[in-house]
């Protein structure tokens, strides 16, 4: 199965996401801040990155995603957001936000699994 990196500063979210993904047979590695997140992605080369948009600073997740893309890392990124998309004013998939999909918090296990599988499938096709 796949090797997934989860970067989020909330230990409960890390725990919950790991549990769900591990139950589906994936290997999971976690980091609770952008710096460690960057390091594990660089050294371990996961198949998928799950990234929280807000960590110490409101845009930490975006900056990290941009940093990955600038350095030519094309690993798919799934972003956790806690901002309601209903209002749609915050972000969409674009140059500014170089991520592949969003999961809105609170995370439902089913949605997480579905989105992860979908992104991994796209990666395989590529």
């Amino acid at each position: 199965m796949a090797f997934i990196a989860i970067i989020d500063d909330d230990p409960d979210i890390l725990d919950a996401s790991s549990l769900v993904l591990k139950s589906k047979g994936h290997d999971v590695i976690t980091a609770n801040n952008p710096n460690d997140g960057y390091k594990i992605v660089k050294s371990k080369k996961p198949d998928l990155i799950i990234l929280d948009v807000m960590m110490d600073e409101p845009d930490d997740g975006f900056y990290l995603a941009q940093k990955f893309r600038k350095e030519g890392i094309t690993i798919p990124i799934l972003m956790y957001t806690s901002v309601s998309k209903a209002i749609g004013l915050d972000f969409g998939k674009s140059e500014m936000v170089p991520v592949d999909d969003f999961v809105e918090k609170p995370i439902s296990p089913e949605e997480l699994v579905n989105k992860v599988e979908a992104l991994l499938k796209v990666k395989e096709v590529k």
Partner: peptide
């Protein structure tokens, strides 16, 4: 946002338990 973060986490944990993870 500060209030939402723990509530979100709580929700996720409960969901996890309900889904028998």
């Amino acid at each position: 946002h500060e209030v939402k973060t723990p509530v979100t986490a709580t929700h996720s944990i409960i969901d996890l338990i309900i889904n028998k993870f």
